[in-house]
Design a protein around this nucleic acid. Structure first.
Lengths: 134, 134
DNA sequence: CAGTATCCGTGTTGATACTG
DNA sequence: CAGTATCAACACGGATACTG
Protein backbone atom coordinates (compact mmCIF):
# COMPACT_ATOMS: atom_id res chain seq x y z
CA UNK A 1 0.00 0.00 0.00
CA UNK A 2 1.51 3.20 -1.19
CA UNK A 3 0.69 6.16 1.01
CA UNK A 4 1.49 9.81 0.61
CA UNK A 5 4.02 11.39 2.90
CA UNK A 6 1.32 13.15 4.85
CA UNK A 7 -0.65 9.97 5.27
CA UNK A 8 2.43 8.29 6.64
CA UNK A 9 3.23 11.22 8.83
CA UNK A 10 -0.31 11.28 10.13
CA UNK A 11 0.19 7.75 11.34
CA UNK A 12 2.90 8.73 13.73
CA UNK A 13 6.14 8.92 11.82
CA UNK A 14 6.76 12.52 12.72
CA UNK A 15 8.95 14.41 10.32
CA UNK A 16 11.40 17.07 11.40
CA UNK A 17 8.80 19.80 10.97
CA UNK A 18 6.74 18.65 13.91
CA UNK A 19 9.31 16.85 15.97
CA UNK A 20 8.05 18.45 19.18
CA UNK A 21 5.00 17.22 21.11
CA UNK A 22 4.41 13.69 19.85
CA UNK A 23 1.34 13.46 22.05
CA UNK A 24 -0.36 16.03 19.85
CA UNK A 25 -0.55 13.32 17.21
CA UNK A 26 -2.61 11.04 19.46
CA UNK A 27 -4.75 14.01 20.34
CA UNK A 28 -5.35 14.69 16.67
CA UNK A 29 -6.24 11.09 15.92
CA UNK A 30 -8.69 11.05 18.79
CA UNK A 31 -10.26 14.40 17.94
CA UNK A 32 -10.26 13.86 14.19
CA UNK A 33 -13.50 14.24 12.27
CA UNK A 34 -14.33 10.55 12.24
CA UNK A 35 -12.26 9.55 15.25
CA UNK A 36 -14.61 11.37 17.61
CA UNK A 37 -17.69 9.69 16.19
CA UNK A 38 -16.13 6.24 16.04
CA UNK A 39 -14.94 6.37 19.63
CA UNK A 40 -18.30 7.53 20.88
CA UNK A 41 -20.20 4.82 19.02
CA UNK A 42 -17.83 2.11 20.22
CA UNK A 43 -18.34 3.32 23.76
CA UNK A 44 -21.88 1.97 23.47
CA UNK A 45 -21.01 -1.44 22.07
CA UNK A 46 -18.90 -3.23 19.50
CA UNK A 47 -19.76 -2.92 15.83
CA UNK A 48 -19.13 -4.54 12.51
CA UNK A 49 -17.65 -2.37 9.78
CA UNK A 50 -20.77 -1.54 7.79
CA UNK A 51 -22.86 -1.32 10.88
CA UNK A 52 -20.46 1.19 12.40
CA UNK A 53 -20.55 3.18 9.22
CA UNK A 54 -24.32 3.49 9.43
CA UNK A 55 -24.22 4.25 13.14
CA UNK A 56 -21.73 7.07 12.61
CA UNK A 57 -23.86 8.41 9.78
CA UNK A 58 -26.69 9.02 12.20
CA UNK A 59 -24.59 11.37 14.31
CA UNK A 60 -22.96 13.34 11.52
CA UNK A 61 -22.35 12.79 7.85
CA UNK A 62 -21.58 9.39 6.45
CA UNK A 63 -17.92 8.54 6.23
CA UNK A 64 -16.63 7.06 3.01
CA UNK A 65 -15.33 3.52 3.31
CA UNK A 66 -11.88 4.88 2.77
CA UNK A 67 -12.13 7.35 5.62
CA UNK A 68 -13.67 4.88 8.03
CA UNK A 69 -10.99 2.34 7.19
CA UNK A 70 -8.26 4.90 7.65
CA UNK A 71 -9.69 6.09 10.94
CA UNK A 72 -10.07 2.58 12.29
CA UNK A 73 -6.56 1.60 11.25
CA UNK A 74 -5.07 4.65 12.89
CA UNK A 75 -6.96 4.04 16.11
CA UNK A 76 -6.05 0.36 16.02
CA UNK A 77 -2.41 1.19 15.56
CA UNK A 78 -2.54 3.60 18.48
CA UNK A 79 -3.92 0.75 20.57
CA UNK A 80 -7.33 2.33 21.12
CA UNK A 81 -9.43 0.02 18.98
CA UNK A 82 -9.42 -3.77 18.82
CA UNK A 83 -10.04 -5.42 15.49
CA UNK A 84 -11.40 -8.95 15.47
CA UNK A 85 -11.51 -10.47 12.00
CA UNK A 86 -13.34 -13.79 11.88
CA UNK A 87 -12.09 -16.19 9.22
CA UNK A 88 -15.49 -16.78 7.69
CA UNK A 89 -17.10 -16.22 4.34
CA UNK A 90 -18.50 -13.69 3.93
CA UNK A 91 -15.98 -11.79 6.05
CA UNK A 92 -17.01 -10.57 9.47
CA UNK A 93 -14.93 -8.04 11.37
CA UNK A 94 -15.85 -6.69 14.76
CA UNK A 95 -14.46 -3.50 16.21
CA UNK A 96 -14.38 -2.66 19.90
CA UNK A 97 -12.51 -0.41 22.29
CA UNK A 98 -9.45 -1.50 24.23
CA UNK A 99 -9.12 -0.34 27.83
CA UNK A 100 -6.94 2.48 26.58
CA UNK A 101 -9.50 3.34 23.95
CA UNK A 102 -12.25 3.40 26.51
CA UNK A 103 -10.33 6.01 28.49
CA UNK A 104 -9.88 8.12 25.41
CA UNK A 105 -13.49 7.76 24.42
CA UNK A 106 -14.62 8.87 27.84
CA UNK A 107 -12.56 12.03 27.57
CA UNK A 108 -14.05 12.69 24.18
CA UNK A 109 -17.51 12.07 25.50
CA UNK A 110 -16.87 14.65 28.20
CA UNK A 111 -16.02 17.21 25.58
CA UNK A 112 -19.00 16.27 23.44
CA UNK A 113 -21.33 16.52 26.42
CA UNK A 114 -19.96 19.90 27.31
CA UNK A 115 -20.57 21.03 23.73
CA UNK A 116 -24.14 19.83 23.86
CA UNK A 117 -24.82 21.31 27.29
CA UNK A 118 -23.46 24.73 26.37
CA UNK A 119 -24.82 24.75 22.88
CA UNK A 120 -27.41 27.46 23.43
CA UNK A 121 -24.97 29.71 25.23
CA UNK A 122 -22.73 29.38 22.21
CA UNK A 123 -25.63 30.04 19.88
CA UNK A 124 -26.56 33.18 21.79
CA UNK A 125 -22.96 34.33 21.74
CA UNK A 126 -22.90 33.91 17.98
CA UNK A 127 -26.07 35.87 17.50
CA UNK A 128 -24.74 38.69 19.64
CA UNK A 129 -21.46 38.66 17.73
CA UNK A 130 -23.15 38.68 14.35
CA UNK A 131 -25.55 41.42 15.30
CA UNK A 132 -22.76 43.64 16.57
CA UNK A 133 -21.07 43.34 13.18
CA UNK A 134 -22.37 42.53 9.69
CA UNK B 1 -13.96 40.25 4.01
CA UNK B 2 -14.74 37.65 1.41
CA UNK B 3 -14.74 34.13 2.78
CA UNK B 4 -15.19 30.83 1.02
CA UNK B 5 -18.37 28.89 1.47
CA UNK B 6 -16.65 26.41 3.71
CA UNK B 7 -15.19 29.14 5.83
CA UNK B 8 -18.65 30.58 6.30
CA UNK B 9 -20.08 27.17 6.98
CA UNK B 10 -17.31 26.51 9.46
CA UNK B 11 -18.45 29.50 11.40
CA UNK B 12 -21.80 28.00 12.19
CA UNK B 13 -24.05 28.61 9.24
CA UNK B 14 -24.76 24.96 8.68
CA UNK B 15 -25.87 24.02 5.22
CA UNK B 16 -28.43 21.33 4.54
CA UNK B 17 -25.73 18.72 4.18
CA UNK B 18 -24.80 18.77 7.85
CA UNK B 19 -28.00 20.03 9.38
CA UNK B 20 -27.78 17.44 12.15
CA UNK B 21 -25.71 17.87 15.31
CA UNK B 22 -24.93 21.57 15.51
CA UNK B 23 -22.88 20.93 18.62
CA UNK B 24 -20.36 19.05 16.51
CA UNK B 25 -19.37 22.42 15.11
CA UNK B 26 -18.42 23.77 18.52
CA UNK B 27 -16.58 20.55 19.17
CA UNK B 28 -14.64 20.98 15.97
CA UNK B 29 -13.75 24.57 16.74
CA UNK B 30 -12.52 23.59 20.16
CA UNK B 31 -10.56 20.56 18.98
CA UNK B 32 -9.21 22.19 15.85
CA UNK B 33 -5.50 22.24 15.24
CA UNK B 34 -4.93 25.73 16.60
CA UNK B 35 -8.01 25.88 18.80
CA UNK B 36 -6.58 23.30 21.17
CA UNK B 37 -3.29 25.15 21.55
CA UNK B 38 -4.89 28.57 21.91
CA UNK B 39 -7.31 27.43 24.60
CA UNK B 40 -4.56 25.76 26.56
CA UNK B 41 -2.29 28.78 26.44
CA UNK B 42 -5.08 31.13 27.45
CA UNK B 43 -5.81 28.89 30.39
CA UNK B 44 -2.51 30.06 31.83
CA UNK B 45 -3.01 33.77 31.33
CA UNK B 46 -4.16 36.36 28.83
CA UNK B 47 -2.01 37.13 25.82
CA UNK B 48 -1.49 39.70 23.14
CA UNK B 49 -1.74 38.57 19.54
CA UNK B 50 1.92 38.18 18.67
CA UNK B 51 2.77 36.94 22.10
CA UNK B 52 0.14 34.23 21.81
CA UNK B 53 1.50 33.28 18.44
CA UNK B 54 4.94 32.70 19.89
CA UNK B 55 3.54 30.87 22.90
CA UNK B 56 1.61 28.49 20.68
CA UNK B 57 4.68 27.94 18.54
CA UNK B 58 6.47 26.48 21.54
CA UNK B 59 3.87 23.73 21.93
CA UNK B 60 3.48 22.78 18.30
CA UNK B 61 4.25 24.44 15.02
CA UNK B 62 3.86 28.14 14.53
CA UNK B 63 0.48 29.22 13.26
CA UNK B 64 0.40 31.64 10.39
CA UNK B 65 -1.12 35.01 11.23
CA UNK B 66 -4.07 34.09 9.11
CA UNK B 67 -4.74 30.86 10.95
CA UNK B 68 -4.34 32.42 14.37
CA UNK B 69 -6.68 35.24 13.42
CA UNK B 70 -9.23 32.82 12.06
CA UNK B 71 -9.04 30.61 15.13
CA UNK B 72 -9.39 33.54 17.51
CA UNK B 73 -12.33 34.99 15.61
CA UNK B 74 -14.13 31.67 15.58
CA UNK B 75 -13.59 31.17 19.29
CA UNK B 76 -14.62 34.74 20.00
CA UNK B 77 -17.78 34.31 18.00
CA UNK B 78 -18.59 31.13 19.91
CA UNK B 79 -18.23 33.12 23.11
CA UNK B 80 -15.17 31.27 24.35
CA UNK B 81 -12.58 33.99 23.95
CA UNK B 82 -12.76 37.62 24.96
CA UNK B 83 -11.07 40.17 22.74
CA UNK B 84 -10.01 43.45 24.27
CA UNK B 85 -8.74 45.95 21.70
CA UNK B 86 -7.18 49.03 23.24
CA UNK B 87 -7.51 52.17 21.13
CA UNK B 88 -3.83 52.99 21.19
CA UNK B 89 -1.08 53.35 18.67
CA UNK B 90 0.54 50.98 18.05
CA UNK B 91 -2.48 48.69 18.45
CA UNK B 92 -2.70 46.48 21.49
CA UNK B 93 -5.19 43.62 21.66
CA UNK B 94 -5.48 41.27 24.59
CA UNK B 95 -7.10 37.87 24.39
CA UNK B 96 -8.47 35.98 27.36
CA UNK B 97 -10.94 33.21 28.12
CA UNK B 98 -14.55 33.85 29.03
CA UNK B 99 -16.10 31.66 31.73
CA UNK B 100 -17.50 29.50 28.98
CA UNK B 101 -14.11 29.32 27.34
CA UNK B 102 -12.48 28.32 30.57
CA UNK B 103 -14.82 25.35 30.83
CA UNK B 104 -14.01 24.32 27.29
CA UNK B 105 -10.30 24.75 27.86
CA UNK B 106 -10.44 22.57 30.93
CA UNK B 107 -12.07 19.78 28.97
CA UNK B 108 -9.42 20.10 26.32
CA UNK B 109 -6.70 20.08 28.93
CA UNK B 110 -8.15 16.82 30.23
CA UNK B 111 -7.81 15.26 26.82
CA UNK B 112 -4.33 16.64 26.33
CA UNK B 113 -3.22 15.35 29.71
CA UNK B 114 -4.61 11.94 28.94
CA UNK B 115 -2.68 11.94 25.68
CA UNK B 116 0.53 12.82 27.45
CA UNK B 117 0.00 10.33 30.26
CA UNK B 118 -0.74 7.45 27.92
CA UNK B 119 1.80 8.40 25.32
CA UNK B 120 4.16 5.52 25.94
CA UNK B 121 1.37 2.97 25.94
CA UNK B 122 0.37 4.34 22.56
CA UNK B 123 3.94 4.23 21.37
CA UNK B 124 4.30 0.61 22.42
CA UNK B 125 1.03 -0.26 20.71
CA UNK B 126 2.32 1.30 17.52
CA UNK B 127 5.56 -0.63 17.66
CA UNK B 128 3.69 -3.88 18.19
CA UNK B 129 1.35 -3.07 15.32
CA UNK B 130 4.15 -2.18 12.95
CA UNK B 131 6.18 -5.22 13.83
CA UNK B 132 3.25 -7.56 13.27
CA UNK B 133 2.89 -6.16 9.76
CA UNK B 134 5.33 -4.55 7.35
C1' DC C 1 -19.07 -8.18 3.51
C1' DA C 2 -14.95 -5.76 4.22
C1' DG C 3 -11.93 -3.97 2.53
C1' DT C 4 -7.90 -2.06 -1.27
C1' DA C 5 -6.32 0.81 -5.19
C1' DT C 6 -6.61 4.82 -7.90
C1' DC C 7 -7.83 9.09 -9.48
C1' DC C 8 -9.27 13.72 -8.85
C1' DG C 9 -11.75 18.12 -7.16
C1' DT C 10 -11.47 21.58 -3.69
C1' DG C 11 -10.95 23.28 0.80
C1' DT C 12 -7.57 24.35 4.20
C1' DT C 13 -3.37 25.93 5.02
C1' DG C 14 0.38 28.88 4.88
C1' DA C 15 3.83 32.63 2.52
C1' DT C 16 3.91 36.87 1.23
C1' DA C 17 2.80 41.57 0.69
C1' DC C 18 0.21 45.19 2.28
C1' DT C 19 -2.73 48.55 5.53
C1' DG C 20 -4.29 51.41 9.66
C1' DC D 1 1.58 45.78 16.37
C1' DA D 2 -2.39 43.55 14.71
C1' DG D 3 -4.36 42.46 11.49
C1' DT D 4 -6.34 41.99 5.98
C1' DA D 5 -5.85 40.46 1.07
C1' DT D 6 -4.25 37.48 -2.28
C1' DC D 7 -2.51 33.51 -4.20
C1' DA D 8 -0.32 28.81 -4.68
C1' DA D 9 0.42 24.11 -2.88
C1' DC D 10 -0.95 20.23 -1.27
C1' DA D 11 -3.35 17.27 1.71
C1' DC D 12 -7.88 15.56 2.57
C1' DG D 13 -11.64 13.34 1.60
C1' DG D 14 -14.88 11.30 -1.72
C1' DA D 15 -16.31 8.47 -5.95
C1' DT D 16 -15.48 4.64 -8.20
C1' DA D 17 -13.95 0.19 -9.55
C1' DC D 18 -11.99 -3.83 -8.10
C1' DT D 19 -10.59 -8.07 -4.95
C1' DG D 20 -10.69 -12.09 -1.50
Amino acid sequence: MKVSESEARERGEATSREAACPYRLVLEHVTSRWGVLVLMELLERSYRFGELRRAVARHGRTASEKMLTQTLQTLERDGLVHRDAKPVIPPRVDYSLTDLGREAAEQVRGLARWSKDRMDQVTRAREAYDEARG
